[in-house]
Computed example of a mutant assay.
Amino acid sequence: MKITQTRDIRAANRWEIMHQVLEHSPISRVEICRRTGLNKATVSTIVKEWIDKGLLAETELGKSGGGRKPILLQPLHQAGAAVALEIDISQVQAILTDLSGERVLAREQFPTLGESFPQVYHKVCQALDKLLAEMPPSPYGLVGIGVAVHGVVDLSGMIRFIPRLGWRNIDLRSLLEERYHVPVSLDNDGNLAALAQQNLEQASLGPEGQGSEALPQSLAVVNVGDSISTGLITNGEVFRGFHGFANAIGHHTINLDEPVQCSCGKYGCWEQYCSNGAVIAYANTVLPQPISTLEELITLIRHQDPLARQVMDRFLTYLAVGLTNIIFIFDCQAIAISSELLSALPYYLPEVMRKMVLPITHVEKVVLSRLGKSGAILGAASQAVFQFFQDTAHAMEPGQ
């Protein structure tokens, strides 16, 4: 939408300045001017507004390139708190963070496998109530809730389908907003992990906006766990598709001859070969003694068990097939993978890359995400915090 009104421009500038502080603090006013292209007067005026709101503070002096040392700015993370939820196939975890969206103040977790939505929702509310009871006093209190869902979420934030749980058309966002009276953002775990990865990449850039490598313009983050999802970032924005389902890549077909039906109703989905449960199920058709966890398989692989290594090779092969398809479809510049197996056995990552067949295209880098399994829930926390600052930027406008 084209911004045409002065108050919208002011609100957009307020958010852009605070966004720079959130991503790059401690940061000087001069550096904010350089990064945003805004003039010194505008930056100084808006910085004062944020300071007056009790959300920004001046800190120590920065390095000088000649002349007076600049005063650095940083957000007052202790001014409020956010809650983030991650609804996985087998468990729900919830965290309470400060306004950094990263510093975890308290955590709750409980299993969910086989339970109905009303049962899980009741436990979610119990967990959130416990977290809020531990929330330290602050001027703004709870500012928002972010939710990461391992399932199909549409553009409105409605949970359309979680195949393994059988949940359909659930408006969890409205339920939480009605109960806790704060804004709630809800998205697929892949999208939120991708946003968290992008924030991590952005934060790693140097003071001049350049690190050892430039920020990827096209990034795919692949979450491999009880389910498989992918977040796609193009030019800084999440690619969602027409309905918002672009991240449901775990259910693209990689084997037309698969006789067993996937939980989504199709046959031969990527998730049937590379999800944690699928790997364990296949391992139990190969190994002489059954296993119930990936940790057991990892131990066998580390001890050079030939059958366990056969299981790992099959996982790597099908993982490479799915990654190759992502690269061909979306022409990704970089891929970050979150996988319990590969995180425990990172020396197998080059084998994945060797198995990827890319005759007419290429990907610049394939890495393991440094966020690991925390990417989605940290992304949810960041979304809640960012939404609070965006809403505040608009509410600061006179008459709103």
Rank of each mutant, 00 (worst) to 15 (best):
M1P: 13
T4C: 10
D8H: 10
I17S: 02
H19R: 13
V21Y: 06
E23C: 03
P26Y: 08
P26G: 07
S28A: 12
I46K: 00
I46V: 15
K48E: 15
W50Y: 07
D52T: 04
K53N: 11
E58F: 08
R68W: 14
R68C: 09
P75S: 08
A82W: 03
A84V: 04
A84E: 04
I89S: 12
I89P: 00
I95A: 01
D98Y: 03
L99V: 05
L99D: 01
E102V: 01
F110G: 05
F110N: 04
P111I: 04
T112K: 01
L113M: 12
G114Y: 08
S116P: 09
V120Y: 06
H122P: 00
K123W: 09
L132M: 09
G141R: 01
V147G: 04
L155W: 07
G157D: 02
R160W: 09
F161D: 05
W167D: 03
R173P: 03
E177V: 03
D189W: 05
S204R: 04
L205E: 08
E208F: 11
G209N: 02
G211C: 04
A220N: 05
E237V: 03
V238Q: 07
H243S: 15
G244Y: 01
H252L: 14
D257R: 08
K266Y: 12
Y267P: 08
W270P: 02
Q272W: 02
Y273W: 11
A281C: 05
A281N: 11
V286I: 14
I291S: 06
R302K: 14
L307D: 15
F315P: 01
Y318L: 06
Y318C: 01
A320R: 00
I327V: 15
Q333H: 12
L341P: 03
P346Y: 11
E351I: 02
P359D: 06
I360Y: 15
V366D: 02
V367S: 12
V367Y: 14
A376Y: 02
A380P: 04
Q390T: 00
D391C: 00
H394W: 15
M396L: 15
E397C: 06
E397F: 05
G399C: 09
Q400H: 13
